[in-house]
Write a protein that binds this DNA or RNA. Structure first.
Length: 887
RNA sequence: GGGCGCGUAGCUCAGCGGAAGAGCUCCCGGUUUACACCCGGGCGGUCGGCGGUUCGAAUCCGUCCGCGCCCACCA
């Protein structure tokens, strides 16, 4: 028979095949509408809300292992809360991912030798939309494969009409409040993407460069030996408009206020005193290039040194009036250096490793560039975002990561939000021919003739920052917003704390007042998990070649196995490693559950999921029910604390080490005891434990648990079943002690059997004396000891301690493997191998022999010696085992 | 230069004041009627070093060594 997802079966096949079950099962859940959220049930007070917005993956993206972790943890929470009776909204969607997506389409155009300019703005944007509809959003199908219980009816895209209106609304509000401004500043310019970038889109890495010391000025301008400055960017000297030294630096005091001749360019530049200069670094004098360095820009502003831009947007020297105009940046660097060398102005040059900004998208070296851009004045927004956490309106979990958040929001620079791209939300600002500026809200008509809209679009993170409420209909007041905002929790990696979380906190507190009139927050808790690394704990990267594909594992081991592996390794804020073997281990766990349930059903457990008659409970029954209660309480508490790893680990051990390894084995005896009341009760206990266990595990491994639970109970679905509840029994210490005694005795006997060379499967006659009769009987059953008839032919005995006094077990060892003979044989082999090695050593140590014997003969002897060594090693290990077993 | 964290079995990690643990690996045995995606047994650790607090420290404090991550306008 086969497992069908559409109609739950009450029988199970011989083996679990996740691939055959998972896809149709997900379709069944969708068809049943289990994942839909209804705000009415919250607003009526019928249910408590639980809401999560999915961090929107890029429309260009595929499900990588980091997503798989992120989504698994969110799904655990969503499914758990749904079962706990909350109205759950898990809202999915995607990010338009400005630069990333535009780049994808531009690369396609480049294949035909075209650029976006060949098509013009409107046509190009249409092409991006076409791409999005055809190839974008592959990740959505992959989310379904993973089992995400999101409300697909509420899927959003950051460029949807509604979200675009939200973007325009908040832009206008910020503009009117003076929190958005346009200014000419030094910004991060990517010469590859030809756009401005915000600080977070720049990645710093240590690059090897060259620190070149140059002498400015000389006798000719009356400054004697002049001043030596050091730079890693020689070419920027063409844009120098000053030299700065520290005000207290006596070495240069006589030069401050004078001017020097700038080599090559020939213009006079002043020496200024500025406390920014570190007198201990290099020569203590720094060249000032206001248009190409943020520090220098500030120094220049303080001292009236005007910026001179010497680079085009694509990094060519321009407008310097020198022979270098037209050269690319790196060519210019060496050419300028050569010219300085020719003039004898190079004082020193040495290799120098320093931190250099790179474009996080293209990898190009970022050029600080003076440019007219739009900015968000972040100070008041960041203050509110910080206060929300300081005041506990939003809790960061684990708390150790809060300092990072504060460090960020307390020191944030103004945010460059304009991008010289076409794919994104266009800046809603129009300019008139005579220089007027007008910011237009979503409900307003754009101005007519004589006005042109700003050509730039907004940073992708501008719209992502609105995600928690723009997706719920803001700026309109909607039922969804009323019911589900603020969201309950944001689950994400700590690596995105600044990129995204801080932005949402800023916009959320700014745009939406809380119920008490104070600043609203987008989420009550931020639960941060770590990064997924490879099996050696190394960061995954394409260059390292250790990136794993969760989809391949899903196909091989099933989505449940991948989910369980990730959840089990998830400790708050801590990175985790993952390997295929571990996913296989999780698959084995699913299989174990499957077989345990199958066993219960084959024994009638499926018919016995009703109430239990307490009178007939054995000690084993009472013990497992008590343990179940403990596990239910513990799992619930751990989930409340976002301790996914420990919750999964606890369930794994209860299910495998306690329920399967001990209770199931004890239950076999109870089922075969011939006492029908005991057997019936055992069936009930099996049903009861599995019912609860499958519920507890369902958030982690939804597919296999659903398959098993519907088969076991005939219920409709675990997705909508109530969460496991404790029985309310008082725990039974006597039962716990009984089981503990059985476990201790069984373990002793098993070790004894193994030591004696008694094959585990064989029934062996034995006599017990002392201890508890019921413990002894159970232990005998689990260790295949049968009551001895007449006298033994050969015996050995052990004495085990138990709470009922010492137990003496006498065992018939006539069926034991004959170890002394085996040992004797191995010892002989070992002696031969040892001799062989000695003989080989002697020959190889003989210089005369080595000098005369042909190489093949020597190689043969070496080979034989190596083999003998391997033999010795193998035999020694085996002998050690055998000798040890005898004692 | 700031901030956070980590060094526990071969590997990846839990444990964070009261008798050293898990998964994977390794070794031995096993056709045990739920399961070989399994069962049973076993090897393996001066819990980074050194001091201190404590009746007791992997667990707290100090210090040193090694490693990682994040932030930062060190030319």
């Amino acid at each position: 028979m086969t497992l069908s997802a559409s109609t739950p079966d009450r029988e199970l096949p011989a083996q679990y095949d996740p691939a055959a079950v998972e896809v149709p099962l997900y379709q069944r859940w969708l068809a049943a509408g289990y994942f839909g959220a209804d705000p009415a049930r919250v607003l009526s007070g019928e249910r408590k809300p639980f809401s999560i917005v999915l961090p929107p993956p890029n429309v260009t993206g595929n499900l990588h292992v980091g997503h798989a972790l992120d989504h698994t943890l969110m799904d655990v929470l969503a499914r758990w809360h749904r079962m706990s009776g909350d109205e759950v909204l898990w809202l999915p969607g995607m990010d338009h991912a400005g630069i990333a997506t535009q780049n994808v389409v531009e690369r396609q155009l480049a294949v035909d030798g075209k650029t976006r300019h060949d098509f013009g703005r409107d046509l190009f944007v249409q092409k991006v939309w076409d791409w999005k509809h055809e190839s974008g959003g592959a990740i959505l199908g992959q989310m379904k494969r993973l089992g995400d219980s999101v409300d697909w009816s509420r899927e959003r895209f950051t460029l949807d009409d509604g979200l675009s209106a939200a973007v325009q609304t908040i832009f206008k509000k910020l503009y009117d409040d003076g929190l958005i401004y346009r200014a000419e500043r030094i910004i991060n310019w990517c010469p590859g993407c030809l756009t401005a970038l915000s600080d977070i889109e720049v990645e710093h890495q240590d690059d090897l460069g060259e620190l070149v010391s140059i002498r400015y000025g000389d006798d000719a301008d009356g400054t004697g030996d002049g001043i030596v400055v050091a730079t890693t960017r020689v070419e920027t000297m063409l844009g120098d408009t000053g030299i700065a030294v520290h005000p207290d630096d006596g070495r240069y005091a006589h030069l401050v206020g004078r001017t020097l001749t700038l080599p090559i360019a020939g213009r006079q530049i002043p020496v200024v005193a500025d406390s920014h200069v570190d007198p201990t670094f290099g020569t203590g004098a720094v060249k000032v290039t206001p248009a190409h360095d943020p520090n220098d820009f500030e120094i220049g502003r303080r001292h009236g040194l005007l910026p001179i831009t010497i680079l085009t947007e694509d990094n060519h020297i321009d407008g310097t009036g020198t022979a270098f105009d037209g050269l690319g940046l790196l060519n210019a660097r060496s050419a300028v250096k050569e010219e300085l060398r020719r003039q004898g102005r190079i004082v020193a040059e040495k290799p120098y490793t320093h931190s250099v900004g790179h474009c996080s998208r293209s990898g190009d070296v970022i050029e600080p560039r003076l440019s007219l851009q739009w900015f968000v004045r972040v100070a008041p927004l960041a203050k509110a975002a910080g206060d929300a956490v300081r005041e506990g309106r939003t809790v960061i979990h684990p708390p150790e990561l809060a300092p990072r958040y504060f460090d960020w929001v307390d020191n944030m620079h103004d945010w460059t939000i304009s991008r010289q791209l076409w794919w994104g939300h266009r800046i809603p600002v129009w300019y008139s021919t005579d220089g007027e500026i007008r910011c237009v809200g979503p409900d307003e008509e754009p101005p007519g003739d004589g006005w042109v809209q700003d050509p730039d679009v907004l940073d992708t993170w501008f719209s992502s920052g609105l995600w928690p409420f723009s997706t719920m209909g803001w700026p309109d007041r909607t039922d969804v917003l009323d019911a589900f905002y603020p969201t309950s929790v944001l689950v994400t990696g700590y690596d995105i704390l600044f990129f995204w979380v801080a932005r949402m906190m800023m916009f959320g507190t700014y745009a939406l007042p809380a119920a008490d009139g104070g600043p609203g927050v987008p989420f009550r808790t931020v639960a941060l998990h770590g990064l997924v690394r490879d099996q050696f704990g190394k960061k995954m990267s394409k260059s390292r070649g250790n990136v794993v594909d969760p989809l391949a594992w899903i196909e091989e081991f099933g989505a449940d196995a991948v989910r369980f592996t990730l959840a089990r390794g998830a400790n708050p804020g801590t990175d985790q490693a993952i390997a295929g073997e571990w996913v296989a281990g999780a698959r084995n766990f699913c299989s174990k559950l499957f077989n345990a349930t199958r066993f219960a059903m084959l024994n009638g457990g499926a018919l016995a999921t009703g109430p239990i008659e307490p009178a007939a409970l054995t000690a084993a029954d009472r013990w497992v029910l008590d343990r179940l209660d403990e596990v239910i309480g513990q799992t619930t508490a751990l989930l409340e604390d976002f301790q996914f790893g420990k919750a999964a680990e606890g369930l794994y051990h209860f299910a495998w080490d306690e329920f399967c390894d001990w209770y199931l084995e004890l239950a076999k005896a109870q089922l075969q005891s011939g006492d029908e009341e005991v057997a019936d009760t055992t069936r009930s206990v099996l049903g009861r434990v599995l019912d609860s266990l499958l519920k507890l595990l369902h958030p982690f491994i939804p597919f296999v648990t659903e398959t098993l639970w519907t088969a076991l109970t005939g219920g409709e679905s675990l997705v909508i079943s109530p969460w496991a509840t404790v029985s309310g029994r008082t725990s039974d210490h006597v039962a716990a002690q009984w089981v503990s005694d059985v476990q201790a005795l069984v373990t002793e006997i098993r070790r004894f059997r193994s030591d004696q060379g008694l094959p585990p499967g064989r029934r062996v006659p034995a006599r017990f004396s002392g201890g508890s009769a019921s413990v002894n009987a159970a232990a005998a059953s689990l260790t295949r000891l049968t009551p001895a008839e007449a006298g033994f032919s050969a015996t050995a005995s052990l004495v085990a301690a138990s709470s009922a006094g010492p137990v003496d077990v006498e065992v018939d060892t006539s069926s034991a493997v004959d170890k002394p003979a085996e040992i004797a044989r191995l010892e002989k082999d070992l002696a031969i191998a040892t001799k062989e090695i000695a003989a080989a050593e002697e020959k190889l140590g003989n210089a005369a022999f080595l000098g005369k014997a042909p190489e093949p003969v020597v190689a043969k002897i070496r080979n034989r010696s190596d083999r003998a060594r391997a033999d010795v090693q193998r035999l020694t290990v085996r002998l050690t085992d055998l000798r040890k077993d005898r004692t």
